[in-house]
Amino acid sequence: NEEPLPEGWEIRYTREGVRYFVDHNTRTTTFKDPRNGKS
Score class of each variant (00 low, 15 high):
Asn1Ser: 14
Asn1Asp: 14
Asn1Ile: 14
Glu2Gly: 10
Glu2Val: 10
Glu2Gln: 11
Glu2Leu: 11
Glu2Trp: 11
Glu2Ser: 10
Glu2Asp: 12
Glu3Gln: 11
Glu3Lys: 11
Glu3Ser: 10
Pro4Asp: 11
Pro4Gln: 10
Pro4Phe: 07
Pro4Arg: 09
Pro4Val: 08
Pro4Gly: 10
Leu5Arg: 01
Leu5Pro: 14
Leu5Trp: 04
Leu5Val: 06
Pro6Met: 04
Pro6Asn: 03
Pro6Ile: 03
Pro6Gly: 05
Glu7Gln: 12
Glu7Ser: 13
Glu7Pro: 14
Gly8Gln: 05
Gly8Ala: 04
Gly8Leu: 04
Gly8Met: 04
Gly8Val: 02
Trp9Ile: 03
Trp9Ser: 00
Trp9Leu: 02
Trp9Lys: 00
Trp9Val: 02
Trp9Ala: 00
Trp9Thr: 01
Glu10Gly: 05
Glu10Met: 06
Ile11Arg: 05
Arg12His: 08
Arg12Ala: 10
Arg12Asn: 06
Arg12Thr: 05
Tyr13Met: 07
Thr14Cys: 00
Thr14Ile: 03
Thr14Ser: 09
Arg15Thr: 13
Arg15Asn: 13
Arg15Trp: 11
Arg15Pro: 14
Arg15Glu: 13
Arg15Phe: 12
Glu16Met: 11
Glu16Thr: 14
Glu16Tyr: 13
Glu16Cys: 08
Glu16Gln: 13
Glu16Ile: 07
Gly17Ser: 05
Gly17His: 07
Gly17Trp: 05
Gly17Gln: 05
Gly17Leu: 05
Gly17Asn: 08
Gly17Val: 01
Val18His: 11
Val18Pro: 01
Arg19Thr: 09
Arg19Trp: 05
Arg19Glu: 08
Arg19Ser: 07
Tyr20Thr: 02
Tyr20His: 02
Phe21Val: 00
Phe21Glu: 00
Val22Met: 09
Val22Glu: 05
Val22Ala: 05
Asp23Pro: 00
Asp23Trp: 03
Asp23Glu: 05
Asp23Asn: 09
Asp23Lys: 02
His24Lys: 09
His24Asp: 04
His24Ser: 08
Asn25Ile: 10
Asn25His: 08
Asn25Leu: 09
Asn25Tyr: 08
Thr26Pro: 00
Thr26Gly: 06
Arg27Pro: 05
Arg27Met: 14
Arg27Ile: 07
Arg27Phe: 10
Thr28Gln: 10
Thr28Ile: 09
Thr28Ser: 10
Thr28Asn: 08
Thr29His: 12
Thr29Gly: 06
Thr29Lys: 14
Thr29Val: 15
Thr29Pro: 07
Thr30Lys: 03
Thr30Met: 04
Thr30Ile: 04
Phe31Tyr: 12
Phe31Pro: 05
Phe31Leu: 11
Phe31Arg: 07
Lys32Phe: 07
Lys32Leu: 12
Lys32Glu: 15
Asp33Ala: 02
Asp33Ser: 01
Pro34Lys: 01
Pro34Thr: 01
Pro34Tyr: 01
Pro34Met: 00
Pro34Ala: 01
Arg35Leu: 03
Arg35Val: 03
Arg35Ile: 03
Arg35Met: 03
Asn36Phe: 10
Asn36Gly: 14
Asn36Thr: 14
Asn36Cys: 15
Asn36Asp: 15
Gly37Phe: 09
Gly37Leu: 07
Gly37His: 13
Lys38Asn: 15
Ser39Ala: 14
Ser39Trp: 15
Ser39Asp: 15
